[in-house]
Design a protein around this nucleic acid. Sequence first.
DNA 1: ATTAGTATACCCCGAATTGGCGATACAGTT
DNA 2: AACTGTATCGCCAATTCGGGGTATACTAAT
Lengths: 214, 214
Amino acid sequence: MEEIKKMKIAIFEDNQQFRESLEFVIVTSNDMELCGSFEDTNRLLQRIEALQPDVVLMDINIPGKNGIDAVKEIKEKFPKVNVCMQTVFDDDDKIFASLCNGASGYILKNTPPDKIIQAIREVAEGGSFFTPSVAKKVLNNFQQKPQQGEFVQLTEREKEILKHLVDGLSYKMIAEKVYLSFHTIHTHLRHIYEKLHVNSKGEAVSKAIKNRLV
Amino acid sequence: MEEIKKMKIAIFEDNQQFRESLEFVIVTSNDMELCGSFEDTNRLLQRIEALQPDVVLMDINIPGKNGIDAVKEIKEKFPKVNVCMQTVFDDDDKIFASLCNGASGYILKNTPPDKIIQAIREVAEGGSFFTPSVAKKVLNNFQQKPQQGEFVQLTEREKEILKHLVDGLSYKMIAEKVYLSFHTIHTHLRHIYEKLHVNSKGEAVSKAIKNRLV
DNA sequence: ATTAGTATACCCCGAATTGGCGATACAGTT
DNA sequence: AACTGTATCGCCAATTCGGGGTATACTAAT
């Protein structure tokens, strides 16, 4: 009988049913070991520290710190620990926030056991695993085309001022920043609005970003 | 015996061994039909036009037009055809170029047959499939983006209103749009500003876009 | 040399919008 | 009972926006 070093898995999931289901999947596998199972993220880092898991399964909506902040903390303190997010909803915001914060995988809770095992193995080996619908969202984000817009020819001054506007500065603050009078900023902004065919700060900022003018 | 409409698959692969291996995988499946198999991309669009495949398996390095340009042409002319790329190398540039050009999946050639079938099914249904190593690269690209993703939990209403704000609508216009009073919009915006830690429309719009809240 | 155009910078006014402060109310959850 | 999300209202100061105008400087074409 060869001795295999089992992967150590920690579960963070507040729903008892899901948690037990995950526990079952782990303990009945032959290459994984359940090293901890919790229903909240209290004392998160201490727990990770003590357990030294290879993979963490983290629920997005979990009492205590939410899963998105949790994954961030984990990756900051223990970069080698790989985290796989799980949730019932495939909500865009949460997916991207999780992935940006360092999660390596994202599975929905309707994922069948064999896929969960597969996901954990991939994640443990430093790979990544997405549920297809999540993969699709990630992909869409990639394919968002450079929204080619009307040629907008802004002068250097105008681009500079627009950039400050995008950064959230008011007319007055921009004036101070670039050593011009409030009135001049006003005039420039009027020209910019005309060129962009907009008539509010919000629209200007939005168009500036989308057309990559900043 | 129920009559199932089989998915129509077209293969573009110059290596004879791989191509025959793929053909075998397809024809031995029970829900797929091989509608074409080619060793180059000559007369690509005419072939697609004639065969009307549901899914195209496209080799990256293929004589004639390379796979990256091919997927672009296919998606431009036949957006409903889903393309899954395949190659021996997991070369960053080619992966991203393919995905940006509209590929829905990316598998390496060492992928076992059952995974290939799985990938095709996902892709056919409009989902996406990445080999783990590819998923990892996609993910890294995400996480490298110089954006610290502080997660902001907005309610549905708030997100809706923020979207309109980004579109350049004024408080009053938003109120009309969502059939609420001006005052309510005002209140929601105040909450949103608080959650985003901003205090001007410009900053709110900018942060909304950068944090993918819209 | 004059004209025309554009970029820059400044000013005033007035109406509309925004932002910050407060308060109330109700339904659903915890 | 406390909390959250939603929706409503008032007040007031600051900001924004669109309109008008003036002025210098530089370029390019006439």
